[in-house]
Design a protein around this nucleic acid. Structure first.
Length: 675
DNA sequence: ACATGTTAAATTTTT
DNA sequence: TTTAACATGT
């Protein structure tokens, strides 16, 4: 039988975990040790050997990508699995959504079955409207999103007081009511409402299987607990060394507390198949105390440590280096550049574009990032749900698209039913009755008379129309494929687009394209590349210097980064980081790597010690300072404008500004750029 | 209404 | 360090 092949490739550790019979079991899987392989093998084993139907399993992942990977593997064995068998397979949020849509008595929580899922920004819009309507006093409104998130979390933990003396608690309860009234749930609400309802109504799956369990936050753990019936068995895989999202609510202890809570048997997957011995040797220095990590590959090429003068220099060097690798036969898709902060990508983008190196920046684009689509989605939201007043108000009040009504006019039209104030409002209100004849994207476009409302005279018209056409086509196709009634299908699309995203810009997600990947260390989790370059390893940047400074997490983040590399790892730092966060010179993390795994400099076999490298760096620094002393250095500052450098040392820089006079800055914090 | 002093926060990101 | 919002004073 075909499925048995899945087991023959497992090593003894993996097989032991898959064949295990205990009620609850956690797998402590080292980086690169075949975590997903074991998880999928377990599912296949349960299904084919133990005859557990897929619909009796709940398989929880954190990303849609991971969920799709698992489902795809199952389809490879049997392409005929019906969709509804796999409703329990997906992210925590999508599984919760399916439970709410198909079973849980959510009327008890003040919702109806056709509720809508909203993104965080939309909740913020509603919150602002609530604040305005009830004349609430809220401090730090610019950080409301973060504050709301915190308040929701602390309400979850039963805390009733807030840090500031304002109406935030009133806002939270009014907002909760308003969301119920408008029949909307945020991502948080999906789990929160599910948890509340699961207390009385147990779904009791036969098995709960969890991927990357170390990333679970409080509410997700509660979801697992509520979902788990007396007879439910548990299988969870994770790696305590890869906790990099504790700032989002996961904790390092999740793995062990789960084990204790369910008296789970623990298995370990110790062998890393991914990386060369040199890379693993370095990685071991960044492990949690007491963790083991063994590999099976040979030494491989040593880790290269490079020093560059500044980010621009580095980008120029890297461009050449990558091109060189490519000329020698390596594919661009096997190469990746990791950095700590999003905005570090700009230098690379500019230089790579100039040099014609294909690249892709990993940045998620959602519908909300494109203003015209953000507006259009709200038009559709109100059209299918007339309780959704906040969307209607947004649509009418938007200054760029639609009719651009004033606050009071829009309120009159929407809340007091003065429909004649707005043709667009009429169209939205009549949509449900009039949409019978709509079959194509163009029909939808025509119905709402969108040409008039997306500003045909504006410079962005062409681009906007293209985006609108693309989205409308995607919507119509989606409804056709699901064979749903038009209105219901449209509502379903809006929900799933919030949860799974929509690929409007196909070129952004084309994984087949042979391009270098640029991403933050966080985004690199779960991926692997033949050649990995980690840049900007300066103290202050890696590890990032912050106020609530948790070095442990930064160390794990760096660990995640270096363990992405299969064959070749290159680390670099700047002499002049040109960022107020970073200090000149190598981060401590560079020194932590044992010399035996390191080859310094690129050319030649002779090894240069770290000491020598430091001397070189010092020399380069001195050189550049001497240079600075001879030639007059011009600098630019956002606020003070142009100026010349009067003097500088390791820490301070004194600048004479043309229109301000002299001012001294601490180098590490000043936002000066050389011109 | 405007001027001046004080305080908190800045980053990573999936759904 | 820098910024924006908040707090208080005239």
């Amino acid at each position: 039988m075909k499925y048995e092949n899945e087991f023959s490739r497992l090593n003894e550790y993996q097989r032991e975990a898959v064949l295990d019979e205990s009620e609850a079991c956690v797998v402590n899987a080292n980086v690169g040790s075949g975590k997903t392989t074991v998880l999928i093998a377990k599912i296949i084993y349960l299904h084919y050997e133990k005859r557990v139907p897929y619909k009796n399993m709940v398989v929880l992942t954190f990303t849609n990508k991971a969920a799709n990977e698992i489902k795809e593997r199952l389809f490879q064995l049997d392409s005929e699995i019906p969709q509804e068998e796999l409703l329990g397979f997906g992210t925590f949020h999508s599984v919760a959504l399916n439970l709410l849509k198909n079973g849980l008595p959510l009327e008890k929580m003040g919702y109806t079955r056709d509720f809508a899922v909203i993104e965080p920004d939309e909740e913020l819009d509603i919150a602002m409207q609530v604040i305005q309507e009830h004349h609430l006093t809220i401090k730090y409104k610019n950080r409301l999103k973060k504050r709301l998130e915190q308040e929701m979390m602390s309400a979850q933990e039963g805390r009733q007081t807030s840090k500031y003396n304002d109406d935030i608690l009133t806002l939270v309860s009014l907002l909760t009511e308003e969301k119920k009234k408008q029949n909307k749930m945020t991502f948080f609400d999906l789990l929160h409402v599910s948890n509340a309802l699961l207390a009385d109504y147990s779904a009791e799956p036969e098995w709960i299987i969890i991927d990357e369990v170390q990333d679970s936050d409080k509410i997700q753990l509660e979801f697992i607990d509520k979902l788990k019936g007396r007879e439910t068995k548990l299988f969870a895989v994770g790696d305590p060394n890869q906790v990099i999202y504790s700032w989002r609510g996961s904790s390092i202890n999740v793995f062990y507390s789960l084990k204790r809570k369910y008296s789970a048997k623990e298995f370990t997957l110790p062998i890393n198949y991914r990386s060369s011995a040199s890379i693993l040797g370095a990685a071991r220095c960044f492990l949690e105390n007491g963790s083991q990590l063994s590999g099976i590959r040979d030494q491989g090429s040593k880790i290269v440590i490079k020093n560059h003068y500044n980010p621009f220099n580095e980008a120029e060097y890297l461009a050449e280096r990558l091109q060189d690798l490519h000329n020698k036969g390596a594919e661009y898709r096997e190469m990746a550049v990791f950095y700590r902060l999003q905005n570090q990508s700009h230098t690379f983008e500019a230089v790579f574009t100039k040099k014609g190196i294909p690249y892709e920046v990993s940045l998620k684009k959602t519908i909300r990032d494109i203003p015209v689509l953000n507006w259009l989605i709200k038009v559709l939201r109100f059209s299918v749900n007339q309780e959704d007043l906040s969307s209607a108000l947004y649509v009418l009040k938007d200054r760029f698209y639609g009719e651009g009504l004033s606050d009071s006019m829009a309120n009159k039209a929407v809340k007091q039913g003065m429909v004649s104030e707005s043709r667009l409002l009429e169209l939205m209100l009549q949509f449900k009755e009039s949409c019978a004849g709509i079959g194509t994207g163009e029909d939808l476009y025509e119905y709402f008379n969108l040409d008039r409302y997306i500003r045909p005279t504006s410079a962005s018209y062409g681009e906007d129309k293209e985006a609108v056409d693309a989205l409308l086509d995607i919507i119509v196709d989606y409804i056709a494929e699901k064979q749903m009634d038009f209105v219901a299908g449209l509502a379903d699309f809006i929900n799933s687009s919030a949860l799974y995203g929509v690929n409007i810009l196909q070129k952004d997600i084309n994984n087949q394209a042979d391009s270098v990947k640029l991403m933050t260390l966080h985004a690199s989790k779960g991926l692997e590349f033949k050649y990995v370059f980690i840049v900007g390893i300066n103290y202050g940047l890696i590890p990032l210097q912050t106020r609530g400074f948790e070095e442990e997490e930064e160390r794990r983040l760096f660990f995640v980064g270096i363990t992405r590399a299969k064959d070749y790892l290159e680390l670099s730092y700047y002499t002049n980081p040109e960022s107020y966060k970073a200090m000149p010179g190598a981060s401590r993390y560079i020194d932590m790597i044992p010399r035996q795994f390191v080859r310094e400099g690129m050319e030649g076999a002779e090894e240069i010690s770290l000491q020598d490298l430091r001397k070189q760096v010092e020399a380069a620094k001195r050189e550049s300072q001497e240079e600075a002393a001879v030639t007059v250095l011009k600098v630019k500052h956002e606020k003070y404008g142009l100026g010349t450098v009067v003097s500088e040392d390791d820490d301070m820089i004194l600048v004479d500004f043309e229109s301000y006079g002299q001012k001294e800055f601490i180098k590490a914090f000043s936002e000066l750029s050389y011109v």
